[in-house]
Write a protein that binds this DNA or RNA. Structure first.
Lengths: 195, 195
DNA sequence: CGTCTATTTGAATGTACTCAAAAGCGGTGG
DNA sequence: CCACCGCTTTTGAGTACATTCAAATAGACG
């Protein structure tokens, strides 16, 4: 159980001394997650925020008609949770499922709040994390409003080439907000125009 | 120039003593903004985050074809800026325009960073602000993916009744990602089904 | 090898857009 | 105070983008 990567992730924004590092590591739970397992299901309490050490996860919403909408993907070195429900102690609105075998660290809300008190630098760390998440989502809204499906697909490939490698086309479709059939169409037209 | 409302806004999440309050107030710039004025234009440096004391503002993106996409509205007691460009010192990608006469406070990036150092509680304050902004945008993405235009309009009216009062239908359309003509259609159908 | 799911293809349909023109509304100046 | 101007809203016809449904093919996995 190698904590280097998560400590490096933290070190991108704040500096922890050894004692602080040890406290932080001591409150993490390490978890192996097999392919196609749910680490969170709709309706459950969402008590954890997850750091992906390796592997990939997908958060999606399932509406009454059975349609999935992918909220986000998380690969190596990303953080993921149902943020609204985690922060407000509400039952989860989304599912989080592993896309392949994963190693993750989970941090509970109680421990996170303890960290905010004992090591206030964590306020800074999560402020920056939230800032980045916010601006990312804002750009996504903008693209949803102003770009066609084909353009959003191009943008996705450019922004997240590593994600595109590990997820299915159907999952990308549900992230972009189009049907898998229509995305298939877009992809085949792209191929023709290249050749 | 009444600083009560902005201090109350801060007090929602952190407690400042008198000295801290004075330091905070001392770095704010008060500004009157007349109707239909731009406080930020695309391409300009985005050095400030704005708190709306009274009035209403709108941030929108303008694409090459001349189409506007409304990123957000800000009314009394809201904070607004082009967050990505503010944080990363990039030229603004959006316009921010007053919807009516406004009284605003502006806080520069330099002063914000000074506050983070001198009063670390501000890390917490902006963490919470960013969290709320993130979860709001995430919900908006979800609604864009899973709801029809008519449903998104209903949701907008429910969530932001105060905003709906002060903005035009055209501006709401550009927030929802539909044409003004189509939103007009939705509205008239809603009226018929009520009567 | 067989099963399950993802992907592709196509036809019919629906949702939302474009373009155009008319009507409504608010502000401004004579 | 009224007439005009500019912008928003409405309405409608024609079109384009995206969905639904169905069926065939391809791939992944036990």
């Amino acid at each position: 159980m190698n904590t280097d990567s998560i400590l490096k992730n933290i070190a991108k924004h704040i500096e922890l001394n050894n004692e602080e590092q040890n406290l932080f590591i001591s409150v993490l739970n390490f978890k192996k997650v097999a392919h196609k397992k749910f680490i969170l299901q709709e309706g459950e309490a969402c008590n954890y925020i997850y750091y992906v050490h390796s592997g990939a996860l997908r958060a999606f919403y399932l509406d009454k008609t059975g349609k999935e909408s992918t909220i986000m993907f998380a690969i190596e070195d990303w953080w993921i949770t149902d943020m609204f429900c985690f922060l407000n102690k509400k039952p989860a609105m989304v599912f989080i499922e592993s896309i392949n075998d994963c190693l993750i660290y989970q941090l509970s809300k109680e421990n996170l709040e303890m960290l905010y008190i004992k090591i206030p630098k964590f306020e800074r760390f999560f402020r920056i994390l939230m800032q980045n998440a916010y601006t990312r989502e804002q750009l996504r809204v903008l693209e949803n409003l102003s770009l066609t499906a084909a353009e959003r697909y191009q943008s996705f490939l450019l922004k997240y080439p590593q994600i595109a490698k590990v997820v299915t086309q159907k999952q990308i479709a549900s992230y972009l907000g189009v049907t898998p059939e229509f995305l298939s169409n877009i992809v085949s037209k792209n191929k023709k125009s290249v050749s």
